[in-house]
């Protein structure tokens, strides 16, 4: 969906759902996920539909992921750091459980 046009800084190693991903120091988590070509960063709580970032400017909340163990963070606002763990958020909510 996106390719790197320019050198966006030093390589930064992340894991996304346990798999290694190489980001660059200029990346936000959302940019790193898009550059790595992932097909979803979450599935919706209502119907379980896959989502990727939509606005990349902090208003749509479609890029919510778990970062270093904290859930529902806006991936488009968080810069990457070495050793960061990112988990995509999966699954419908189970109301009443």
């Amino acid at each position: 969906m996106f390719k790197r046009l320019a050198d966006a800084g030093a390589v930064v190693a992340l894991t996304v759902d346990g798999k290694p991903v190489q980001a660059r120091s200029c990346d936000t988590v959302a940019a790193a996920l898009l550059a790595a070509g992932i097909d979803r960063c979450r599935t919706t709580p209502v119907t379980g539909a896959p989502r990727l970032p939509y606005c990349l400017m902090g208003v749509c909340f479609d890029c919510l992921v778990t970062i270093d163990g904290v859930g529902s963070r806006q991936a488009c606002l968080v810069p990457v750091h070495e050793g960061m763990t990112v988990e995509t958020q999966q699954g419908r909510r189970e109301a009443g459980r």
Binding site: F2, D7, C26, T28, L52, C55
Partner: peptide
């Protein structure tokens, strides 16, 4: 279909172009 992965705002594409140098591919 505006919620499908692969649909974004123009501003979103411009954001990653400016800040990360990512260019639409495909």
């Amino acid at each position: 279909g505006w919620t499908l992965p692969g649909v974004m705002t123009a501003g979103a594409a411009q954001t990653v172009l400016k800040a990360q140098g990512l260019l639409p591919d495909g």
